[in-house]
Amino acid sequence: MSAGPNNDDWVWVANPDHYILHEIGDSTFAFSRVSGTTHMLNLVSRAMLDYLAEHPKTLTQIIAGFAAYLEVPPEECPSGVVRRLFGELDEVGLVERVEP
């Protein structure tokens, strides 16, 4: 299951006006104002959300750049995992497509 198709011409962003973050210990609670749902994010999903909030990117750019953002070697950040992390945020509506 995915939120919908993807295409490498499409650019994605997380808009901090559309969610509220609250930290409890190592976890982040994200309340989406768009869906009205509360999500519990671990450190990596939280980092993905912050990374997407920086500026709009295509999925290819996300896959290529996320390891460097986390300051870990690329092999510790396989593309399948990055895809899934992105997919989960897309699925719940925490990221949105914008015009390039």
């Binding site: 609250h22 409890i24 210990g25 609670f29 309340f31 009205g36 509360t38 519990m40």
Partner: peptide, 26 residues
């Protein structure tokens, strides 16, 4: 236990948390 996990369990037990939305979260 982790307070975050406790919070998730409380939310899961709520019949109206989702309906109320942002004010329930805060």
């Amino acid at each position: 236990i982790d307070l975050a996990d406790a919070a998730m369990q409380l939310i899961a037990s709520s019949p109206n948390y989702q309906v109320i939305g942002e004010r329930a979260f805060s």
